[in-house]
């Protein structure tokens, strides 16, 4: 019987292909399928807010420029990671991240909790030429961000696409996306109140690049960097101790 079976596989290339699929698919299914029910096991974060249109635009710039190639956004449950970068990252913190930007390499430091650690001015100076503030840095200069106006016309569509994949943006948010982007980077303007109303009290309204009259890509990227790790406080409420790195010297 087995011989007959194998002969058949042997004779028909299609049977062989099916065997490959049978062998290869199970591993992925077993590991991935249970993750669709993961919301039952992970922590909840009722206070978590959404990315504002400006922050989302900044996130898209972060992706576009390939920042993830050198900066992780995932603090591991290791003591030295936690002491260097802050409380370890929780699954819930990236639940609105399409895609996740956990990264795989730290040519530069982790950025999961960079938000609020440095001033807007520091970020702008650093992005213009990193060696002005960190002489030993090997990060590229991003001067062009400051001279590139931010395209806001399609922000409504961007938010709508995010809603398609499961992020709960409201019709109100989508309709006001471009105005909210402008308002967040232009304090004291007519639009600032709206963005705080829609995205919550903790939304940071600031002239991120120091120039309130014009909206640039620098505004968006700095707004995103400043919100990293600050969408929810869930990680600070966790009590579980972090693991000591195996073999770490102390």
């Amino acid at each position: 019987m087995p011989e007959l079976f194998h002969r058949k596989i042997e004779r028909t290339a299609i049977g062989f292909v099916l065997a490959i699929i049978a062998a290869a698919s199970v591993g992925g299914l077993v590991e991935i399928a249970p993750l669709f029910t993961i919301h039952e096991t992970v922590e909840e974060a009722p206070d978590m807010r959404l990315y504002t249109p400006l922050e989302l635009a900044g996130r898209n710039i972060y992706e576009r420029e390939g920042c993830y190639a050198c900066h992780s956004q995932m603090i591991r449950t290791l003591r030295d990671d936690v002491e260097r970068y802050g409380p370890y990252s929780l699954a819930v913190e990236s639940k609105y991240d399409h895609p996740m930007l956990w990264g795989s390499k730290r040519t530069g430091p982790d950025l999961a909790r960079i938000g609020g650690k440095y001033s807007d001015l520091w970020h702008v100076t650093h992005l213009m030429n990193p060696r002005d503030v960190v002489p030993e840095s090997n990060m590229p200069s991003y001067r062009f961000l400051a001279r590139t106006p931010l395209e806001t016309a399609d922000f409504g569509m961007q938010l709508a696409a995010m809603r398609e994949v499961g992020v709960p943006y409201t019709d109100d948010m989508i309709a006001n996306a471009a105005r909210d982007a402008l308002g967040q980077a232009t304090p004291d303007s007519d639009f600032s109140a709206g963005v705080v109303e829609r995205y919550g009290e903790k939304t940071q309204v600031s002239a991120f690049d120091g120039v309130a009259t014009e909206l640039t890509e620098m505004d968006a990227l700095v707004a995103y960097l400043q919100v990293l790790g600050r969408l929810t406080d869930a990680a600070y409420k966790q009590t579980a101790a972090s693991e000591k790195a195996p073999g770490s010297q102390q």
Partner: peptide, 21 residues
């Protein structure tokens, strides 16, 4: 899901930890 039929940009349907896996 692409932003529109005329946009290069899209958003992956996977989020966070599922996307990582």
């Amino acid at each position: 899901v692409p932003v529109s039929i005329g946009h290069a940009k899209s958003y992956t349907i996977w989020a966070g930890v599922q996307d990582a896996m």
